[in-house]
């Protein structure tokens, strides 16, 4: 590849080691969208190479990781263009503004007007054990995919990809205040879904067995 072309421009502080530090986050980001280890690895590889080659254009304003994620997004978009599956990129990108700004509405499903729980969280029986069950992960995935697109994006960038709070805001264009509201709602919804579809289910099953 064009490695020799880029080597001159790396005279600033962007070292290979510095770039490599971001590899895990970039990989998780790519994996979530591409759903394939090899493709994700390729995309990250290409991203780091591109970053290395164009290091001189990195201005350091937005932070290294933001810059790298920006490049990675292009690589992922390139991939979808090649495989003519643009629809799927909507997973993370094009649906951004569909829901508009955060309103009061959502939380009313969970709380009464006086601020008490509608039907509050029940205690879960041995959640740790669920982590080792294949069926649990199918439910988890379904619940996560059930979140409204923007909420899912914010939640995944924070909890799955592992971006910092301010990075998530930059990525999604959310204000600080909307970030907290969005994350809170994501937790409320995901929690309720897991409770209904897994934890209460397994409880019901057990009760049936003993009846």
């Amino acid at each position: 590849m064009l490695l020799s072309k880029g080597t001159k421009s790396t005279s600033n502080q962007l070292t290979e080691a510095l770039l490599a530090e971001h590899r895990p986050v970039l990989f998780r980001y790519a994996l979530l969208q591409l759903r394939d280890n090899e493709l994700a690895d390729d995309a990250v590889q290409e991203t780091l190479l591109a970053a290395w080659q164009t290091a001189s254009s990195f201005e350091g304003k937005a932070g290294l990781r933001t810059w790298l994620v920006g490049i990675l997004k292009h690589k992922i978009a390139d991939h979808w263009r090649r495989t003519v599956r643009e629809v799927v990129t909507s997973d993370f990108d094009s649906v951004d503004n569909e829901e508009g700004e955060a309103g009061e509405g959502d939380e009313n499903d969970f709380f009464m007007s006086d601020g008490h729980w509608n039907s509050g969280p029940t205690s879960w029986n041995d959640p740790e054990a669920a982590l080792n069950q294949q069926e649990f992960w199918a439910i988890y995935e379904a619940c996560q995919n059930n979140l409204p697109p923007k909420m899912a994006k914010v939640f995944m960038l924070r909890e799955l990809v592992g971006l910092e709070t301010d990075e998530v805001c930059r990525e999604t264009g959310l204000s600080d205040a909307n970030y907290w509201v969005t994350m809170h709602r994501a937790r409320l919804r995901l929690r309720e879904c897991l409770e209904t579809r897994w934890f209460n289910q397994s409880k019901a099953k057990k009760e049936k067995r003993h009846a």
Partner: peptide, 30 residues
Amino acid sequence: CRNFQSQSQFMRKAARRYTGQLQNRPDKKP
């Protein structure tokens, strides 16, 4: 609220584990 608190922590753990699972899943070529 106590349940909400511990379940929020559990969900964080699950989210991390889920990413790990994705990485170990046999590759599905699109």
